[in-house]
Amino acid sequence: MVISVMLWLVLIFVALGIIIYAVAIYNGLVRLSRNIEKAWANIDVILKQRRDEIPKLVKTCEGYMQYEQDTLEKITAARTFCIQAKTVAETAQKEAQLSSLLRQLFAVAENYPSLKADQTFLQLQQRISYLENQIADRRELYNDSVNNYNIRIHQIPDMFVARLCGFSDKELFNITDTERKDVDIDFNLPK
């Protein structure tokens, strides 16, 4: 009698343990998944802020850089493509192209002393550089969140709960070296 009651108690603890552990895993995966969404939203806010600065930058540069119209047009087009991007990979690629073009513009601006002395241009340059650093920091945070999540859903015992509840891999915000260098923009803008 005593032994059977004790055995029942052991079984109760084991069963409770398994149920609570499975719930903890599920909740953990939901939290990780929401963290990724939040991290992405946080990047998106900064990307939008950077896109909002570009028309001002182009307008400021136009007056000084008559011979660099091509670069300015490319930047405007790249901004439009960034707005149209839907997936993480697409956004990453388009935003990398925009960053590359902006770097190119700031490099070319060195040849225009009057532009370099313009206060608005300097402020915009500083603001965009700051936003780019913020994007880089938040991208790192986003990728860490995705990495943590992807590792968890492939680890035992989380893997069982993840498969049962349909958790799948998420995309990293990756920028390849080719994407960084590739600044050829197709000008077939949507009408």
């Binding site: 552990y21 909740n27 990780l32 963290n35 880089a136 920091d137 945070l141």
Partner: peptide, 24 residues
């Protein structure tokens, strides 16, 4: 189990930089 939850929260939370800080 509460300690397990807290432990996993720390494990799962990526470290942010001050510059990249967002609310939450």
């Amino acid at each position: 189990f509460m300690q397990l939850r807290r432990k996993r929260l720390i494990e799962d939370m990526p470290t942010s930089t001050v510059r990249g800080l967002a609310l939450g």
